[in-house]
Amino acid sequence: MPTYHYRCKNCGYDFTEQQSFNDDPITVCPKCSQEQVRKVYSAVPIEFKGHGFYRTDKSGK
């Protein structure tokens, strides 16, 4: 199950929740009870491993 990061625009409370893809996003802050919660999106790290991903990995002539 994916984990989502949320932040309340009203009080600044940060929290994470595990939710199914079918669940509706959380909109109410569990701390201040305001409907100011939004998902926080961040870059996903990518790691290339193995042969062929580097500039020095050139094919033979």
Score class of each variant (00 low, 15 high):
44 V>Q: 13
17 E>C: 09
46 I>Y: 10
47 E>C: 07
34 Q>F: 04
28 V>A: 08
39 K>W: 00
45 P>H: 12
61 K>M: 09
60 G>Y: 08
18 Q>I: 10
25 P>N: 10
3 T>F: 03
8 C>Y: 01
44 V>P: 00
45 P>R: 14
7 R>F: 00
13 Y>Q: 06
38 R>P: 00
34 Q>P: 00
12 G>I: 05
33 S>D: 12
27 T>K: 13
13 Y>W: 06
41 Y>R: 06
1 M>S: 11
51 H>T: 09
48 F>A: 12
31 K>W: 01
33 S>A: 12
42 S>E: 11
41 Y>V: 10
22 N>S: 13
38 R>H: 08
51 H>V: 14
42 S>Q: 12
37 V>S: 02
2 P>T: 08
10 N>F: 07
39 K>T: 04
41 Y>S: 09
35 E>H: 12
36 Q>N: 14
13 Y>S: 01
32 C>P: 03
40 V>G: 02
19 Q>R: 14
50 G>L: 09
10 N>P: 00
27 T>I: 15
26 I>N: 02
36 Q>R: 08
35 E>A: 15
59 S>K: 13
57 D>G: 06
31 K>I: 06
34 Q>E: 15
37 V>T: 04
51 H>Q: 11
34 Q>A: 14
29 C>Y: 03
11 C>W: 05
7 R>Q: 15
23 D>F: 02
58 K>W: 02
36 Q>K: 14
35 E>S: 14
33 S>I: 04
25 P>A: 09
47 E>W: 01
34 Q>S: 15
40 V>E: 07
39 K>P: 01
43 A>P: 00
30 P>V: 09
48 F>Y: 10
40 V>I: 13
59 S>H: 05
47 E>Y: 08
2 P>V: 08
8 C>F: 02
16 T>C: 05
7 R>H: 03
4 Y>E: 02
9 K>A: 13
